[in-house]
Design a protein around this nucleic acid. Structure first.
Lengths: 240, 240, 240, 240
DNA sequence: AATGAATGAGACTTCATTCAT
DNA sequence: CATGAATGAAGTCTCATTCAT
């Protein structure tokens, strides 16, 4: 039995595999086959993560995987086919990851905060996601649309649930959809700006997380503008 | 004197050009030179807008411009050099456009609304921006970073001004910067989702604009969750 | 004992095969071996017949035969080796078929007519021959030359026999050889033009057969040109 | 002014070209362009003539022409496009050649003989035609069909004219068409068998020409079989 | 024997860039 | 300056053949 794909993605496999196999140090054909496929997958993820889709030539991927170019086409009909599977593969893993890190029995706002945090944690574990998420729209458009759709749908369901509980503003479903896309867009931009530097993923600053929470809980503008004196920051934007 | 670049971009030049030139129907060498450059620029914008950066080959651009391929290299050292100038060119024009459409003597929230609206209006006038904005991060990264930086800076200044007036929540400057990026990200995603279909720009729905306004003015979550009965929408998300 | 190859080609095997084998439903190793070889053969014939030699890749042939690619090389040293055997296999069967359909105790001219007809009948039964005959010169040149040689030799013998009987013009042996090649060439062209459409074999029109007979019995030109009025067709080539 | 294409094919250009150009030893762009095209054409003809269409890779053709591979695509959209033009180019030249060598004021039979002879003479001058004619059906099917069509049409016209003069048997038009294809097929086979050896074109033997004439003038079979004694050859096919 | 994954040479094609005219 | 032909590196993909299981 081989590792599940998400174990492979995040490298979290723990249990020892079939002992007899290990002792014999031999794999069945099907296992070897699956191994090579995963190998190519991992290589592609790495290459795309490092150089982007455009530079992810079959030559590079197979070199990274340590197999001949022709081998690639034993597993994927076209280069595009592999590229198209990259985002779904990781996307599903990411959703699972985020879901696991989301506390229950807390307010919707806190749960959204959990999700936001978990996203950036996942990004640290699978930094390739950064580029893949950014570039998939252009280089794997079908997969991208599906991914966004899936994200948005599941997100919207959560928000509607919160609305039913009275924790989310009473937006219509259409408005809810818009909210979802704004949140996704915001998160995406923030990841580019605050969790990425010189080609590698960095820790997201705390104030980004709290800012996100503030926007969501109270918006950007004050309802009834008060006098400037009351504001909690001075003109330089520092807390007194 | 030739048209200013933004007049060229939006085609809004009104006044007749230098009459003496027209009568003589001759241009100085420098003018002809500038004309060709603008020509290539416009062609590149059109091609990138229609097919994306990846398909914007020098052959295509020069064909669109009606000049020989070699001519291209009399004006730009490399293909990339032109591509790098595309976003700045349009970006500046866009900022000017948005600024013109932003009312004074209204609340900050309303002005932000103006800006949001103006952005989508500009998009309708210069649909090429859509693709350029989306793809520049990948194909003209330096230009993209500069553009985002410029946008963010000017945006942040406006928000700080609003904060000083007490109309914006009392965020720190760092938080303000985060806000700016969230707004930009949200707007970007919304434009892709709601103002773009089958390769051409469409009118942004009103409810998207109002949703944006709502997020900014009150956030997504209720401060103190009330009972579900009070919510203004039924379980299907419709206004009763 | 397995089917003879021509029975396999035309699928005319009638008698039940070795009963004891069927009851035991087991085959000796040699028999299984031969079966697989015939299987590959039949697959190759089908594939070449449908797609031509160029498209008859080992992958396609083995897929059609339902065996693994590697199996192919247990029976044939190279792909070419199998392709080289295709035409001889069918060629021999064709000659046998034509011979069977040729009446005895008739004039040589009539017998040639029989052969001509039989050729087209065979073509209908084994349509793959069409492509194989056409393409073998290119893709299996050795086999092709041998085939033509065999055809010509047997053909020439028949014609010489007719000459001995006084039914064939008194050509020299060299001339006879030339005649044979002309007849073969004519027949080949006619099959392409009149018995083949859209990749499948069609019935040869009667007037083609009669025209062939006319050329052979009286030539194309009149010995002593008469006046145009006497001709049996009008200027439009219709019988009055 | 450049050589006409058929002069290039057969290399029979006689008159000196534009003297001023020669003195300056410079060519205009258009001339150079045309030169390169002809160069590629000639290279392709040579390569196909020597190795066949299947081996006529762009790499080989451009190597033969002494230009870079990329240059090829400045002149032809695809490899196939050039291959498709090979037969028409030569075919037209051949028809012209044959027509020039056909005497007037002689019987139709003699003129057909002229054409037959001329075909083989042309083959000696342009030996590449051999392979091109043989392989075009497979590798340039559209061009091949057009060529055969053109040949057959012009041929049929000649035969109908002969029929009107009473020199050709009174066949119907349909029969005439069949005759044409038989003649073309016969000629094709004969060229392969008697004018080709070890990859190069050889002189066609006289007895082949006379045999062709005999078939056309009197057919293969005797009308009324006489006694064997009368035949002009002995049993070994030799003239006594 | 049967299997089928692995191999790698080689095919076609694209395109940014150069350079002589 | 403008031109446009020439260049050649690089990319995707195919397929006959090998070989360990």
């Amino acid at each position: 039995m081989t590792k599940s794909s998400d174990e492979l993605i995040r490298g979290t496999a723990a249990a020892p595999r079939n002992a007899s196999k290990l002792t014999r140090n031999k794999l069945t054909r099907a296992e070897r086959n699956e191994l090579t496929r995963q190998n190519l997958f991992a290589a592609a993820r790495k290459v795309v993560g490092r150089f982007g889709y455009a530079e992810a030539s079959v030559a590079r991927i197979t070199a990274e995987a340590g197999v001949a170019q022709g081998t690639f086409y034993n597993y994927f009909v076209t280069r595009q086919e592999l590229l198209d599977q990259l985002l779904p593969e990781i996307g599903k893993d990411m959703l699972r990851f985020i879901h696991e890190r989301t506390r229950y029995r807390v307010s919707e706002a806190e749960r959204e905060n959990d999700r936001f945090r978990a996203f950036f944690e996942y990004l640290k574990e699978v930094p390739e996601l950064m580029r893949i998420l950014n570039e998939a729209e252009l280089f794997a458009p079908a997969a991208y649309r599906q991914h966004v759709e899936a994200m948005a749908t599941s997100y919207a369901r959560l928000l509607r649930r919160g609305r039913a509980k009275g924790e989310v503003q009473p937006f219509t479903d259409d408005e809810m959809e818009v909210m979802v896309h704004m949140l996704l867009g915001a998160r995406g931009y923030l990841s580019q700006r605050y969790a990425f530097a010189d080609g590698s993923v960095t820790q997201i600053p705390e104030h980004v997380i709290s800012s996100y929470a503030k926007l969501l809980s109270g918006g950007l503008f004050r309802r009834e503008p008060e006098t400037a004196q009351e504001t909690a920051v001075d003109k330089k934007g520092r807390r007194p």
